[in-house]
Design a protein around this nucleic acid. Structure first.
Lengths: 205, 205
DNA sequence: GTCTATACTCGGATAGAC
DNA sequence: GTCTATCCGAGTATAGAC
């Protein structure tokens, strides 16, 4: 790049602005004008940096995912014991979402709109490797360390408990009468609560 | 209405078409032309029946919700015993979502975009009444029938396990290698599996 | 009640000056 | 790299015939 350095480069400001706007309105609802305004530039410059809206979106999306997945994948594939792994996953996952509360809904939405594109963008065509984790669960069942449960069900349970409060946040806060501070507090609790909930349910001791 | 009856009225066909399109593209992404095409009419007629896109959307949204909530609310307020209630809820909820798999994402999306409007449209300004259920949970904790757990956490757990597979469906099917038939089968299983999972976790026997 | 034709608006994209 | 000006398609809305 041949440009003078500022506190934040134009490109960076565009990406930040775009992220905000895409989060708020989704791909179709986002306005290039609003992104330009937020970034303090004009529309033409947007198209100079990113050929079109889709390219811009894709960049934001992938960038966001990249911050998210590697750690999760490494936990999945690690050699931690099953319940340690579940706890590590919940802790890491909830922490990351607390930093970027918009991600789950964003991902779910894109995923459901474009399942194929989604896979390509998210993992470069490769599925995340859950073989090890699945094997671990099946082994634990076989050794009668945990009650019989299909690995898919167990994983859906854990994922659901982690993600739901964030995507259902307005509903949760409304019907539970919970303010923002309390909500964050509860999510912190859930990093331990969920693994414990799971352990109590399936562990045979 | 003074018009000749067909198998399905024009209004009904519009609403069905609109639902499909809104589900697929969301409010902003939906095209009136596509809705008109699906309904077998032209754009002008859409505006004759529903003044504009927002009105049409609102109609679809409320109509969809109305089919969903009363039963859930009546279960919440019923005098079933706690675990019976949880099982009734999961059964009813999963059944209803299986009939309209699009609802959860649709609701979550609208909810997060317009928390205030959402409440107004969904319950006419009234929150759903969870007092009875919350009281039941607290009482069960107090009587040492279940382990100590904040009612909100328990409810988030249950909701999350019910909803997640549907909103995360593409992901679930992809990484688990599950086809549509198998997916439906698994959701049927979850109507019993989730209540049992919960019971094993919190019940003190 | 249904349709055709068309006006109008908005927003994404481009050309070209600086 | 950045801007102004403008184009053009998509989409909403309306007028008016039948």
């Amino acid at each position: 790049m041949v440009k003078t350095k500022k506190d934040t480069s134009t490109e960076e400001r565009i990406l930040n602005a775009a992220r905000e706007v895409f989060i708020e309105h989704g791909l179709a609802g986002a306005r290039m004008q609003e992104i330009a305004d937020k970034a303090g530039i004009n529309k033409a410059l947007l198209h100079y940096y990113f050929r079109n809206k889709e390219k811009l979106f894709e960049t934001v999306f992938i960038e966001t995912m990249q911050a998210f997945l590697p750690k999760i994948n490494s936990i999945f594939s690690s050699d931690l014991e099953l319940f340690e792994k579940i706890e590590a996953f919940c802790g890491e996952y909830i922490d990351k979402i607390l930093e970027n509360p918009f991600i789950p809904l964003f991902v779910l939405h894109e995923m459901n709109k474009q399942p194929d594109e989604f896979v390509k963008n998210m993992w470069g065509g490769k599925k995340p490797n859950i073989k090890i984790l699945v094997g671990q669960i099946e082994e634990a069942v076989h050794k009668k360390q945990i009650r019989p449960i299909h690995p898919a069900h167990l994983m859906m349970n854990i994922m659901g408990m982690c993600i739901f409060p964030f995507v259902g946040r307005p509903l949760v806060q409304l019907i539970m009468n919970v303010n923002d501070r309390q909500f964050t507090q509860m999510m912190q609790e859930r990093k331990k609560l969920i693994p414990e909930f799971v352990r109590l349910s399936i562990q045979i001791k």
